[in-house]
């Protein structure tokens, strides 16, 4: 079985509270924030590793971004993936989710065929959850988002998903795209040996020219149907009054405020 896992390099979410908008040129100031593998994509890698352990196979990680993303792909290889591809080209830069899913689907076509394509359900930075089902659409494959379990059953994949009022089980014919919910598993830790071994695993950087029949009208910023306008900071409109006293006193004050407010 060949499994592809799409991973994204994102600015570390622990630093998001430090992000500010430059008042002059209205762009994000995020210099100095380290890049990490998107958390939910790590769960996708873990899901791939578990499937490989159970059914055998090979895991390829795929990403798109600047050359520095090689570092996150090395980390994915250290987690246990066998091979990595990075699409790095200015032509595909500035892509929205539709243009990103198109470029990734081309990398999947180029490096495949695969039996299963896994991804994290959402990225920490954009958090749209759009890309997996749009990859499925471009490739004409079935897709499922927010899977809580994934297993292989002969030639099909079985996955479950939680809805507002219940849980459904789906059967997806292979090849298909499945985006995993973070609750699907616990991500294993990598050790020093694995990190050293990862350095010798194949990592190929692709450019747009390497991709078969790439239709330029669908790539990059100009191929993106959504465009970005202005950025705004989320500011609070509240001003906080601090209550002081013993626990009993402040508890009484809170309770009064609640009662007062609910009565109004």
């Amino acid at each position: 079985m060949r499994i592809a896992v799409c991973v994204k390099s994102v600015p570390d979410p622990d630093y998001y509270d430090q992000i500010i908008i430059d008042p002059v040129n209205k762009t994000l100031k995020r210099a100095g924030i380290p890049a990490v593998i998107n958390a939910s994509d790590k769960h996708a890698i873990e899901a791939a590793l578990q499937l490989k352990e159970k059914h055998g196979g090979e895991i390829t990680v795929i990403s798109m971004g600047p050359p520095a993303v090689e570092q996150q792909l090395r980390e994915a290889l250290a987690m246990g993936a066998d091979e990595a591809f990075l699409l790095s080209d200015r032509k595909v830069g500035g892509a929205d989710t539709l243009a990103t899913s198109y470029a990734l689907s081309k990398v999947i076509e180029k490096t495949g065929p695969y039996d299963l394509i896994l991804a994290g359900n959402e990225s920490a930075d954009g958090a749209t959850s759009h890309v997996p089902s749009q990859i499925g659409e471009w490739l004409g494959m079935g897709s499922l988002c927010s899977a809580l379990s994934v297993d292989m059953d002969g030639v099909n994949f079985i996955a479950t998903k939680k809805f507002e009022n219940g849980t459904a089980q789906f059967c997806l014919s292979s090849p298909c795209v499945i985006a995993v919910n973070q609750r699907i598993n616990k991500v294993r830790l990598t050790n020093m040996m694995a990190i050293l071994k990862a350095k010798k695993k194949p990592l190929t950087v692709l450019s747009a020219a390497d991709l078969p029949d790439l239709d330029e009208q669908y790539i990059g910023l100009s191929g993106s149907p959504t465009q970005n306008g202005e950025l705004h900071m989320v500011e609070s409109t509240k001003s906080c009054t601090m209550l002081e006293g013993t626990e009993e006193e402040t508890a009484a004050m809170i309770y009064d405020k609640i009662k007062q407010f609910i009565r109004e």
Binding site: L98, T128, V131, S133, Q134, C145, T226
Partner: peptide, 19 residues
């Protein structure tokens, strides 16, 4: 809806703003 919206936008090749 979180799944149907991007899938449909992908089919229509139009823009979708999330959340």
């Amino acid at each position: 809806g979180s799944e149907l919206a991007p899938a449909t936008a992908g089919k229509l090749k139009t823009g979708l703003a999330a959340h």
